[in-house]
């Protein structure tokens, strides 16, 4: 039976009728056209669909849309303010952490959740936390460097805008 859900997506209240078998990712992409969140496996193994649900990183391919009722969701589209990019997005660009870019939104969202709770994460902590996000292009080195760069900035008192 279809269900009405109300949740907040990137700061905007949204009400939708969803089928019980739809995942959050299905709704974000196919119903709201927020295509920044990607499906790389649909089984919670690659992390390309990572969004923040009440601030925590979630594989949106594994979460049913009905379970998002009442929650606050942040997707990659909600991270930059207009044309002003989030420091993590800037660092990914500057450090050469982006190749094909398919895993990038999920990587950035996982990194944001990590730095939100641990602003001066070490390289080892970054590697462990991001082990759920697969990348086939970069070998991860430059991704870790980009996140470290922002961790360094946060440690140094730079204000985060996201």
């Amino acid at each position: 039976m279809n269900k009405n859900i109300t949740f907040t997506v990137n700061g905007e209240p949204v009400s939708l009728t969803v089928e019980p078998r739809w995942t959050l990712l299905r709704v974000l992409r196919d119903k709201m056209f927020l295509t920044g969140s990607k499906e790389g496996c649909g089984e919670g193994e690659c992390g390309s669909c990572t969004v923040l649900v009440d601030g925590k990183p979630v594989n949106s391919c594994l979460m049913l849309a009905v379970a998002a009722d009442g929650k606050t969701i942040t997707t990659i589209e909600g991270l930059s303010r207009g044309t002003e990019l989030h420091p993590l997005q800037k660092a990914f660009i500057e450090k050469g952490a982006i190749q094909c870019g398919f895993c990038t939104p999920g990587m950035v969202m996982t990194a944001k959740s990590l730095l939100d709770k641990n602003p001066d994460a070490s390289a080892e902590e970054i590697r462990q936390e991001m082990a759920g996000n697969l990348c086939r292009c970069t070998g991860y080195t430059k991704i870790v460097e980009a996140v470290q760069e922002v961790a360094g900035q946060l440690k140094g008192g730079c204000h985060e805008n996201g």
Binding site: D30, T35, I76, L85, I93, C100, G101, P105
Partner: peptide, 16 residues
């Protein structure tokens, strides 16, 4: 790089 950082970059599956 910037459109890939923001999720704006369209891949084939993103075409509706």
């Amino acid at each position: 790089a910037s459109i890939k950082a923001t999720g704006e970059a369209l891949f084939a599956a993103d075409i509706y």
